[in-house]
Design a protein around this nucleic acid. Structure first.
Length: 291
DNA sequence: CTGTCCCTGATT
DNA sequence: AATCAGGGACAG
């Protein structure tokens, strides 16, 4: 489940593969709502373009092109962006691994879930966007055009402050976890890291946001940053669907303290971790440590 | 603000 | 065969 750390790891690994290279051709699967920009338009506008840089805001990736257009990429739930030249095939799932070439250096052969392939004029590795469930998005933004979904985003989680969270929390009576997941407040936090941050801050996910104090907001944001930075360093979390661009899975899943640990003892006090549903998302917390 | 839906694969 | 997973847009 790609959240900010997974998207940032993807950005770092993909940037050297994109920046400075010129797109020679574009291959896509058939049109679907995955393509906010239709495949023929993508072909028309991408071919011949050189990528200037690859940026990230929250869970969005933005490739800036030499004509000022920007290619917006969102991984959704199951999106994977990676090089066709796979360096660690053993870490792909068995099924995905079957799409690797047999002879020579491992290369990923586009399967039916590979919706976008960017090939480059230098003949080097291609960039592939694979997404089994198609919750991901591809959108080409014309130069100077702003996008509503980007405009709505709050401050990136790595730059967020407790003060900003507190300001939003005072006006809302939703559960604090719902607020953490609201990309318009803080961009980049998803279900896993929301649970982890609230655990580290000792705040129950279901508590009304307006009953969370300023110092608790400080703790929550600090914890969210800490846990996400740590996750970036270890290569991103990997529950089941996330694959780094080099084909490896992430290391952070070993570090989860509450997420998907229902019924297991709290690592701090031994109380059994509880699972509830908040904002239609599975939510995990320690009933003793978190108040 | 909450509920529904998009989609497919794994699990029950 | 039914249920679950959930990011985010949208309807109500």
């Amino acid at each position: 489940m790609p959240e900010l750390p997974e998207v940032e790891v993807t950005r770092r690994r993909l940037a050297p593969l994109l920046v400075g290279r010129t797109i020679a051709s574009v291959e896509t699967t058939k049109d679907s709502y995955f393509f906010l920009t239709k495949p023929p338009t993508l072909q028309l506008r991408l071919v011949g373009r050189t990528v200037r840089q690859l940026n990230r805001h929250g869970k969005y990736l933005l490739a800036e092109l030499d004509d000022g257009d920007r290619l917006l990429l969102h991984l959704g739930m199951t999106g994977q962006l990676f090089s066709s030249a796979v360096t660690s095939p053993r870490l792909f799932s068995a099924k995905t691994r079957s799409s690797l070439t047999r002879e020579g250096p491992p290369e990923f052969k586009a399967d039916k879930h590979t919706h976008l392939c960017l090939h480059f004029t230098d003949g080097g590795p291609s960039v592939l966007f694979r997404d089994v469930r198609k919750f991901g998005k591809v959108l080409l933004l014309k130069s100077g055009i702003e996008d509503r979904r980007l405009g709505k985003l709050g401050v990136d989680a790595l730059r967020a402050t407790g003060r900003a969270l507190f300001a939003a929390a005072r006006a809302r009576k939703v559960p604090i976890k719902t607020l953490l997941l609201d990309q318009a407040v803080i961009a980049g936090i998803g279900n896993i890291y929301a649970d982890e941050a609230l655990f580290l801050a000792s705040v129950r996910p279901g508590r009304s946001a307006r009953r969370v104090t300023a110092s608790e907001c400080d703790r929550i944001v600090a914890a969210a940053k800490r846990v996400m930075k740590r996750s970036i360093v270890t290569g991103g979390s990997s529950i089941s669907d996330y694959v780094s661009p080099d084909g490896s899975d992430g290391g952070y899943q070993k570090e989860r303290r509450v997420y998907a640990r229902k019924g297991l003892p709290c690592l701090v006090c031994g109380t059994l971790i509880r699972r509830v549903v908040i904002a239609t998302r599975s939510t995990h917390y320690c009933p003793a440590c978190q108040v």
